[in-house]
């Protein structure tokens, strides 16, 4: 128990001391994971919505595959992205291995299936309720999709948060494609792995506490948006 007390105290110390290397690591963690989530949402949200209302051959199979991809192992994704970006790989000429860009790509691949699958589920459920009423009003196709997305917009905040939770917490993908290079590709999770392997358990645990506080802060911001946005919408 004293381990946790010490870790918590040193975590507070780290944050309060504005330790510059810690700030740098937190900054990169947020930059990588938020970029991955934003790109993943831009790609995944329309795809999820399209699968929800579309009827095409292979739809059921696609849904099973996307749902399964929510559980993609980060190390496997890291390895695949590594193989693509390594010097001998097809995208080696981009020379982005061991850069934050590679980390964003890997995390984006991890979170996009989550955005697609959960968006699909929310929109499909909404469509079951709204379908007849909207068709009766002559709302079809695009217009219908936009209406459904607008209707479930607050649920979609949860979708984005789930994606962010996945991205900020994973270590397997970013450590393979980023390489945990100090001042270049070191993020919270890779630092924790490194400090643990060096035997600095106290520091590792303190970083873990910081990581959890970070996740808490992002969720608190989202909850605030969710709480006050409906009032604005009815004004």
């Amino acid at each position: 128990m004293s381990d946790f007390t010490t870790a918590f105290t040193s975590a507070i110390g780290l944050i309060a001391g504005f330790d510059t290397s810690l700030i740098e690591i937190i900054g990169l963690s947020l930059r990588v994971s938020l970029s991955a989530v934003i790109i993943g949402t831009i790609i995944g949200l329309p795809l999820g919505a399209a699968i929800a209302v579309g009827r095409f051959p292979g739809r059921e199979l696609l849904i099973i595959v996307v749902n399964a991809f929510m559980g993609l192992p980060p190390v496997v994704v890291g390895l695949i992205v590594y193989l693509q970006l390594s010097k001998s790989g097809p995208f080696g000429w981009l020379q982005i291995l061991y850069t934050p860009t590679a980390m964003i790509i890997a995390q984006m691949i991890l979170v996009t299936p989550i955005v697609i699958a959960l968006t699909r589920q929310f929109i499909e459920d909404a469509n079951a309720d709204y379908d007849e009423a909207l068709r009766s009003l002559g709302v079809h196709g695009w217009a219908k999709l936009v209406t459904l997305i607008t209707e479930v917009r607050y649920s979609l905040v949860t979708v984005v948060l789930a994606a962010f939770g996945r991205a900020i917490a994973e270590v397997g993908a970013v450590i393979i494609v980023g390489g945990n290079i100090n001042h270049v590709t070191r993020v919270m999770t890779t630092s924790i792995t490194l400090e643990t392997s060096k035997g600095n358990l106290g520091l590792a645990l303190a970083l873990g506490v910081v990581l959890m506080l970070l996740a808490l802060a992002v969720n608190a911001v989202a909850a605030t948006v969710r709480r006050f946005a409906p009032k604005a919408a009815y004004a």
């Binding site: 309720d129 709204y130 007849e132 009423a133 009766s136 009003l137 002559g138 209406t147 607008t150 209707e151 919408a233 009815y234």
Partner: peptide
Amino acid sequence: ISRRQSMVFQVPVLLRRS
């Protein structure tokens, strides 16, 4: 033809707005 019709359902479906 469909523009000149409308329908009221047993369970009303309203959008989440005013």
